[in-house]
Design a protein around this nucleic acid. Sequence first.
DNA 1: TATATTTATGCGCCATAGATCATAATCAAT
DNA 2: ATTGATTATGATCTATGGCGCATAAATATA
Lengths: 83, 83
Amino acid sequence: MKNLARTPNDIGHAIRQARKAKKLTQKELAERSGVWQETISKVENGLSGTKLETVFDIFAALDLEILVQGRSKGSAESFEDIF
Amino acid sequence: MKNLARTPNDIGHAIRQARKAKKLTQKELAERSGVWQETISKVENGLSGTKLETVFDIFAALDLEILVQGRSKGSAESFEDIF
DNA sequence: TATATTTATGCGCCATAGATCATAATCAAT
DNA sequence: ATTGATTATGATCTATGGCGCATAAATATA
């Protein structure tokens, strides 16, 4: 699973997708990540003010990591179309 | 340039590295990103509560994006050693 | 070494994230 | 349609990020 992200909304989508892929409810993810279910809901819906730490706590619980890279030119649009 | 990130600190390092690669001062990056120089200093130093939006504003100014992926097992340690 | 430039940090203010709780709204199963 | 499960949202409270300013501290340059 790879999701390109350039906005908090993209991050939210990636998290939701990964969570569903693992067949977890937000509550279960909450328990694993130490973040409240209510908070996870907001993050998944793209809350722009979300704290970086919160995102990484969730990522850890979903066994995700991120790769920071230069923007891929040209392929970015088509890449986003896939997801 | 690719940096694996699992913590706010990793993100800060990636940002600083990219900024230096482009030979920008924090002030110049601040002007480009619309984020205050003082804030950039904190972000680069791994402020855990950094807002996601702030990170993406900086990324946009540095022409960076992120790829959310499953954790690479085994290779993670050696990968981090490189950066 | 002296000077210039860049980065880090203190301060006050305001908006808000996250916690915590409750529950309305939505979705899924029957 | 009804019931159960899941997600979204409102309310309150505390801590804090980012702004905006100033400037100390660190780094770079001459």
